[in-house]
């Protein structure tokens, strides 16, 4: 194998973009619609193992049964189970460009039992801890909620 300087070889840049129209379906779609219309988080409970699927899905992967209609409100408050300060630049999936992830990412267990990943408002590492209480802050009305997790600006600290 020859290992020569890269400039000697032709490299063709071909950007590839593919447009998609993804259907959310009735279960995942309801979770998204509740975020958009009512600023609340809802999951669905498996009739067999009582696990909560959040976002909702049609079939419980653990029991292989259809979940039915046992919708569960999870609340907009929760506890931070884990957080991370991202010190590398990351690729923005919506633009394909580099971006700085300026807010800490966190795993938040909502009071209703389910877990979601989102960003924290608090950037000061000294003030971040596992177990801190947070609540979701939604985009103000009229600022174009899309019915996805970007309708939530971040989770803000609600107590010491």
């Amino acid at each position: 194998m020859t290992e020569k300087a890269g400039e000697e070889f032709l490299v063709m840049p071909i950007p590839l973009e593919l447009p998609f129209q993804w259907a959310a379906g009735s279960y995942h779609g309801r979770t998204l619609r509740e975020i958009k219309d009512n600023n609340r988080f809802v999951g669905i409970r498996c009739p067999q193992c009582k696990s909560i699927l959040f976002p909702a899905a049609m079939v419980c992967p653990l029991c292989h049964v259809k979940v039915g209609e046992d919708w569960v409100e999870l609340g907009e408050k929760g506890t931070v189970e884990d957080f991370a300060i991202v010190e590398m630049s990351v690729l923005d999936p919506s633009t394909g460009k580099e971006r700085v992830e300026s807010q800490p990412q966190a795993v938040i267990r909502l009071d209703g039992g389910a877990v979601m990943e989102h960003r924290l408002e608090e950037k000061d590492p000294q003030k971040l801890r596992v177990g801190m209480r947070v609540e979701a802050v939604f985009k103000p009305e009229g600022e174009g909620g899309k019915g996805d997790l970007t309708d939530i600006l971040y989770f803000r600290t609600i107590e010491k």
């Binding site: 998609f20 993804w22 959310a24 995942h28 998204l32 976002p55 991370a84 991202v86 590398m88 990351v90 690729l91 999936p93 919506s94 394909g96 992830e101 990412q105 979601m116 990943e117 989102h118 960003r119 996805d148 997790l149 970007t150």
Partner: peptide, 22 residues
């Protein structure tokens, strides 16, 4: 990285995906 980000659900948390590092 673009490929790995697209492992994540486009209708859920792909917007904040970082990939295997995270």
């Amino acid at each position: 990285r673009a490929g790995l980000i697209s492992v994540r659900d486009p209708l859920w948390d792909r917007f904040m995906a970082i990939g295997a590092v995270a």
